[in-house]
Design a protein around this nucleic acid. Sequence first.
DNA 1: TCGGGCTGTAAAAGGGTTGTTAACGGCGTT
DNA 2: AACGCCGTTAACAACCCTTTTACAGCCCGA
Lengths: 265, 265
Amino acid sequence: MTISDPGPIRLAILDSDSGFVRVLVNRADSIGWQHRHLESAPRPEEFGAMRVNALVVDLGLLGPGGWDFLEQVADTVPGLGIVVVTGRSSVAQRVRGLRLGADDWIAKPCHPEEVLARVEAVTRRRRQANSRIDQAPVVAAELEIRADQFQAFASGRSVDLTRREFEVLQLLAGAEGKVLQREEIYQQVWGYAMAHGDRSVDVFVRKLRQKLEGGSPGWRYIHTHFGVGYRFDPEPLDGVGEVLDAEDASPATVDGAAPAGFALR
Amino acid sequence: MTISDPGPIRLAILDSDSGFVRVLVNRADSIGWQHRHLESAPRPEEFGAMRVNALVVDLGLLGPGGWDFLEQVADTVPGLGIVVVTGRSSVAQRVRGLRLGADDWIAKPCHPEEVLARVEAVTRRRRQANSRIDQAPVVAAELEIRADQFQAFASGRSVDLTRREFEVLQLLAGAEGKVLQREEIYQQVWGYAMAHGDRSVDVFVRKLRQKLEGGSPGWRYIHTHFGVGYRFDPEPLDGVGEVLDAEDASPATVDGAAPAGFALR
DNA sequence: TCGGGCTGTAAAAGGGTTGTTAACGGCGTT
DNA sequence: AACGCCGTTAACAACCCTTTTACAGCCCGA
């Protein structure tokens, strides 16, 4: 999952220039970055599975197909920072690359320290935005979400979520009170862009609702916003008379600042 | 306005190299970017007020104090993309700048097209990362409009708007006090031109009025301007006649150009 | 005051979205 | 190799929303 603590930067390097790669990898190691060296272009969505934050790629290596590759990676994995490195290049080429989705473009020969500094700059924003949203309120109503176990507990009892289910729940809960669009959810959890017509998110929400209801009846956690997406907001479900006292109060909106969150439909 | 339209890029340029600035401004104009040219460094927080997306700055212009300035701007204005442009520079300087918060660093002389492409790349990434976080709720009378939830709240209780209803309300409220013509509203919300005779806007205004009245009686929010369009302006509705005179005042500005007929109801 | 055009209002029609279920297939385990 | 778990995909029904249509009421100019 793209979320959870910032952690070290994870870098993918797609280049066959062994000298360049070696020195880059050395520097990366010494500052604690994780990295993965690729000799040939993988399918774009694989970068999502690798959970890398940024890609350093030598477009020269890919030949004419490089442009397509760049474009596909950029819109398949929106969260990925892309730093292109090449030998000689023209202004027109650089402009084209940047427009297609590259975040930076560096000419070889270049100092590895600068490459890393640029990767860091490219990565900076996204990571700070994510870390803010994700250090989720670990508890919500009767739910406790434990990232260390990839599990959620309702009143102390495990809800028995699968990995994907847990990730979806963690993401939603981490953005408590906010409506997340399906595309955002998919992008964050799966790591790459959602195909048109994909219903996976709906199916997982359905499974989550079912399991949460099983472990914590009396509460509704996930709300649907028709035509938009889903929102996590624990809400007591005063169906019949129960929870007589001191309970229904304050659904406790968290997040930024908020009026009482509430049931839409 | 499907979900949120970023609008054109707004650029601040801090440089005294008139030739460079002139050519940059020309290109920016021709692609529809808005810009602002500064000769000296403003206080960092001013960039927020200028509502610019990115800053192109020649660090050479600022001398030794440039580093501090860079750092302060980066810390103070989180949403701002910073592109540094300089004459000769060393790897160490570039690394330092990037680490302090610069998003890109370009050496002069450089092609204006590349500068703009880099600004675009920086802005693209920035917008993506910041899109869902700093959305201040809009408040008007008893209403609170929250973009992060696609919802409006009246006295803390959800008004339960559908997506379209919300978008129409958001648009109107965002132009508080201004009369918006049906065509404008339709164009903004639906994203394309309104067909002749389409009554959709009327119908949505009707629904909005109904729901707003339900959640916040005692206030009238949307006013009709016969032959023109609608205007959002919260107005207390205390039952009995009062404020006998002082009525004809405030003609309420009509955005573009408009026929004159009137009468608020 | 009259008439045409504009707006308010209601309700039907239709299409798009979501809920829900189940079959399918990959993958790791037994 | 068989089994079971899990994620994906397809299908269908239910539901919600938007659009369309119709008619009544209102405003304004003639």
